[in-house]
Computed example of a mutant assay.
Amino acid sequence: MRISPLLPAMPVFLLLVSGQAWAHAMLDHAEPRVGNKVASPPREVTLTFTQKLEPAFSSVTVTGPSGQRVDAGKARVSGNQMSVPLKGAGAGTYHVNWHVLSVDTHTTDGSFTFQVGP
């Protein structure tokens, strides 16, 4: 039986291919939590990702119950966290949309909601 000279390199190849799935900054958790209900409007939204972010190419927007933007200023990025201050908009559903570039040059985006009210 003849063994291919590529066989010893196969584990390294598989590791490289499978490693690409981890090469994106994915949302790890948020505050307020994704889908959570809070009693009063938060002062800010903080997103934590699985990788460090490039500040110049990462952003987040938040819209309040009326559909108006309630993010008050540019997002602050520090390592793998991004925060944005909010203007209070009362009870209802808030929508958070984010777009980030990780330090490994991969972009990801996503969205979630949280509720404010009694």
Results as ranks from 00 to 15, higher is better:
Pro5His: 00
Ala9Pro: 02
Arg2Ile: 00
Leu15Arg: 12
Pro5Leu: 10
Arg33Val: 07
Val17Thr: 13
Met1Glu: 01
Leu16Thr: 07
Ala9Glu: 11
Trp22Asn: 00
Leu27Asn: 02
Gly19Trp: 04
Ser18Asn: 13
Pro11Lys: 08
Val12Thr: 04
Ala23Lys: 13
Pro32Ser: 02
Ala21Lys: 09
Arg33Tyr: 12
Gly19Lys: 00
Val34Ser: 12
Pro5Ala: 12
Leu15Thr: 14
Ala30Phe: 07
Ala9Asn: 09
Pro32His: 01
Ala30Leu: 09
Ala23Asp: 08
His24Thr: 09
Ala25Gln: 08
Leu7Met: 15
Ser18Pro: 10
Ala21Cys: 05
Gln20Asp: 11
Ala25Thr: 01
Leu16Asp: 07
Val12Tyr: 01
Glu31Ala: 09
His29Arg: 11
Trp22Cys: 03
Val17Ala: 14
Gly35His: 12
Pro8Gly: 07
Gly35Met: 08
Pro5Asn: 09
Leu27Gln: 03
His29Gly: 09
Phe13Val: 14
Arg33Pro: 09
Arg2Gly: 07
Met1Asp: 05
Ser4Leu: 03
Ile3Gly: 00
Val17Met: 13
Ala9Asp: 12
His24Met: 10
Leu6Ala: 05
Glu31Tyr: 10
Glu31Ile: 06
His24Gly: 01
Ala9Ser: 14
Ala21Glu: 13
Ala21Arg: 08
Trp22Gly: 01
Pro11Gln: 04
Met26Ser: 04
Gln20Thr: 15
Ile3Lys: 15
Ala21Asp: 03
Leu7Pro: 05
Ser4Phe: 03
Ala21Pro: 03
His29Gln: 14
Gly35Lys: 13
Val17Gly: 04
Pro8Met: 07
Pro8Ile: 00
Ala23Thr: 01
Leu16Arg: 05
Pro5Gly: 07
